[in-house]
Design a protein around this nucleic acid. Structure first.
Lengths: 124, 124
DNA sequence: TCCTTGGATAGATGATTATCTAATCAGGTG
DNA sequence: CACCTGATTAGATAATCATCTATCCAAGGA
């Protein structure tokens, strides 16, 4: 499960938006992450998973919170998976998802105004 | 110009994703911001404006960087404007745009993993 | 082995959306 | 005023996407 794509935008990006203009390539990579989060259902899924006890949540837990069919939830989880924001793992009957916090942190670092605090490699 | 919408998601949101699950309403509000950034062109526009000297950029500066027609750029600027991420101001012949850093900061605070640092009002 | 339950895939459909051309508006300048 | 340039609006179109139903796969329990 989970083709475990090359974790888009992890290497590709980048200085805070307000520091340097994005290149065309960087903006394409970054936009994939934002696109993945540009849906209310996916945002809620993300927060449900991220805030769930143990840092992971079973699909069965997630489905209940929405007035949506299983396949639709599955579709949204796939989008999140392929963007590199979450990973899924099957354990017995159930599939558990967890968030990749580094990706979220990366994204946050891009948004933060001018502060160089959250910068990547040479942190702090 | 710029209907100056109620700055969506400024009041509506919210604790970091990993802290508490978003409500349906919060996720709808938040998704508007992410949707606005879920396009390579708009991301680049945002970074071009934010990183431009003086914190603002004329539309005429922006158009040059893309292989797109004027109306298309105008459309993207409108989307960014209506999301509350930027504002436009006409000065003589030209229109200048600038970013709302608080909105970006707010968004960053939502993404940041567990740290309670960037929390809003009753911090900590 | 067969059935049941959790989850994903396939394919269809209606709604959004990114882009274009054409037309319009707003300010200067001759 | 007539005209030019910068920018937005209007309307059309092709592509993307969120959702559904139907089907299928995976793992356990009778």
């Amino acid at each position: 499960m989970s083709k475990q794509l090359p974790l888009v935008a992890m290497d590709a990006c980048c200085a805070p938006l307000a520091r340097d203009p994005l290149t065309a390539e960087q903006s394409v990579e970054l936009s994939k992450l934002f696109k993945a989060m540009a849906d209310p259902v996916r945002l809620r899924l993300l927060s449900l998973i991220a805030s769930h006890t143990g840092g992971e949540a079973c699909v069965c837990d997630l489905t209940e919170d929405f007035d949506l069919t299983g396949p639709t939830i599955s579709h949204h989880l796939k989008v999140l998976r392929e963007s590199g924001l979450i990973t899924g793992q099957r354990r017995g009957t159930w599939v558990y998802y967890r968030v990749h916090p580094e990706v979220l942190a990366r994204l946050a670092a891009v948004l933060v105004p001018g502060d160089r605090v959250a910068e990547g490699t040479a942190a702090r």
